[in-house]
Amino acid sequence: MIQLEAPFTEEKIRALKLGDEVEITGIIFTGRDAAHKYIHEGGELPPDMDLKDKIIYHCGPVVIKDENGDWKVVAAGPTTSIREEPYQGDIIKQLGLRAVIGKGGMGEKTLAACKEFGCVYFHAIGGAAQVLASNIKRVRGVHFMEKFGSPEAMWELEVVKFPVVVTMDSHGNSLHKEILEKSTAVFNRLVNK
């Protein structure tokens, strides 16, 4: 198990390889369809929101206010990443992201951006909302709550030992591509294609 702690530098990210199991400690921002579309279309981010060398997490968490009026994340697993494929590569470049967390992997454009700009794709365990929520220590803030609604808002989260697997590294390798090729070969045999 590799420990990855903020600041997430290019060097640390480049050292990661396919299949590495990693625990992340630091700040991550959630962002899904509305946020990606907005940023990609040139929408402005609030001045206090700096995503350089940061991590975007494809997630629409369930967040409630506790008795003291503080935000509390009650469930926070990843959502399917491929929906952000049209935007992700450009956003990695534009914002200087160091990692994307999601599920299901992404396509060629994102893979190329990871290689060029030193970024990596982490796969979280899809559906493991409670395990992952227990690794979120604090909600530091929320952006675009009014505009996008709660699941689509950009939540700024402090995580500790957040468990993920490297499935696309910054050297052009993708576990998703490998598994797709292997399983397609078996499939072709099974259906006599």
Partner: peptide
């Protein structure tokens, strides 16, 4: 582990309910 935690805490197993 997630299944166990969700049951103990009485919270959604997955955030996409």
């Amino acid at each position: 582990r997630n299944i166990q935690l969700a049951q103990e805490r009485s919270l959604p197993l997955c955030q996409d309910t």
